[in-house]
């Protein structure tokens, strides 16, 4: 996986960092967010090792069917191909290898770093996003397979200034400790409430079976969802 996980991009493509940028400007200091710093320091080393990594991973091509019908089926890759994704209401086209996961496309190509990479094996839930309103593991969803679908990330349901009702309820109920699993939990809880008009503690426990919090903040999370359900009852959907 390492060959494309943290793919460096030209600096010109970077967007201003959110809250860190604001703090930095206030103090008249250069914008040295952790993410931006690591990227800068990492690029030189990675460029040197990327060639070596790729060299022993040469793909031997499989013969493609010669028939017209199969040709129409359109074999893509293994190199980069244009992939058009609709994320948080915005359509964007990226050049990605077919093997690139949606999570890596979000984090490494679009700077949408809310969804987190933890287990990377469709188990822990830290990477949870919505596709057509349903919770999925973006670490195990191919970006190319998410084309034509409506993708919603944690960035799409609220902002630091305007928290979504679910995020606000997490805040109110102290439903996080280290916070790394939190975006995934917020997305899983939001999907649950959007499909369950009458949430119960038992139903909630089942619906959160696909997310893990190593800090063990489950009690706060359950309280948060029930609070969010009450807060949004009159408004309909949570996000």
């Amino acid at each position: 996986m390492s060959s494309h996980d943290d793919k460096p991009r030209p600096n010109g493509e970077e967007k201003p960092n959110r809250s860190h940028a604001k703090d930095a400007q206030d103090k008249n200091l250069p914008d040295l967010s952790r993410r931006r710093f690591i990227k800068g320091a990492g690029i030189a080393g990675m460029a040197a090792s990327a060639g070596a990594l790729l060299a022993d991973r040469v793909v031997e091509a499989l013969p493609r069917p010669q028939t017209g019908a199969a040709g129409a089926a359109g074999v893509l890759g293994p190199g980069e191909v244009p992939v058009t994704l609709r994320i948080n209401g915005k359509t964007q086209t990226l050049n990605l290898e077919p093997r690139v996961m949606l999570l890596d496309a979000l984090r490494n190509h679009l700077d949408l770093t809310g969804a987190k990479k933890v287990c990377d094996r469709a188990t822990c839930g830290a990477c949870t996003v919505h596709i057509d309103g349903r919770a999925v593991y973006s670490c195990t969803t191919l970006a190319i397979d998410a084309q034509g679908r409506e993708i919603t990330t944690i960035e799409g349901i609220g902002s630091a200034e305007h928290l979504s009702p679910m995020s606000q309820a997490f805040w109110n109920n102290d439903a996080q400790q280290c916070g790394f699993c939190t975006p995934g939990f917020v997305m899983a809880c939001t999907a649950y409430l959007n499909h369950e008009p009458h949430p119960t503690r038992e139903g909630l426990e089942k619906s959160l079976g696909g997310n893990i919090c190593r800090c063990g903040t489950y009690m706060g999370i359950k309280d948060a969802v029930l609070e969010a359900a009450n807060a949004t009852k009159s408004k309909g959907a949570v996000a």
């Binding site: 991973r57 793909v59 499989l62 199969a70 089926a73 890759g77 293994p78 077919p98």
Partner: peptide
């Protein structure tokens, strides 16, 4: 994970034509 090709056929027949004789194909 090595790079791979990707196809999204619209019929079962097309899909079968895209498979190989070995599991690794």
């Amino acid at each position: 994970m090595d790079a791979f090709e990707y196809a999204s056929p619209s019929t079962v027949k097309e899909a079968i034509a895209l498979l190989g004789s070995d599991w690794e194909d």
